[in-house]
């Protein structure tokens, strides 16, 4: 059962990568990366149990913190003026024009 859950999480991580590559706006990509990080934490915890080494949970804790810091940092950077014109969908830009 642990291995089945790991495989399910790996499939979901693949879906998140697809959305991060396809995603039309910048925020879709950030959302996909955030989801990828959360699923990575779960995968590390599950793999620790699969291999019988629960010390992996320390790495999972550190990874959760790094994921949060990176998402907040990218969001702060995206508030700067250089991002203003890149963030919008091409459709909405056309509508506003």
């Amino acid at each position: 059962m642990l291995i089945a859950a790991s495989v399910a999480i790996l499939i979901v991580m693949g879906m998140a990568i697809i959305r991060a590559v396809v995603g039309p706006t910048l925020y879709d990509r950030i959302l996909a990366v955030n989801m990828f990080g959360t699923k990575t934490v779960l995968l590390i915890a599950l793999l620790g149990f699969v291999m019988g080494r629960p010390e992996f949970l320390d790495i999972a804790i550190v990874y959760a913190l790094i994921n949060f810091i990176s998402v907040i940092a990218v969001l702060h950077f995206s508030d700067s003026i250089y991002f203003k014109h890149d963030t919008q969908d091409k459709k909405t830009v056309k509508k506003e024009e």
Binding site: T38, A45, N67, Q88
Partner: peptide, 29 residues
């Protein structure tokens, strides 16, 4: 350790979602 991970997930995910929605809304999406 698992309880710590669970608590951090429950605090971090809504905060990140809120910040993401606010940034997207302010940027005009």
């Amino acid at each position: 350790k698992l309880i710590i991970i669970l608590l951090m997930t429950l605090f971090i995910n809504p905060t990140a979602s809120y910040a993401l929605a606010k940034a997207a809304m302010y940027s005009g999406l």
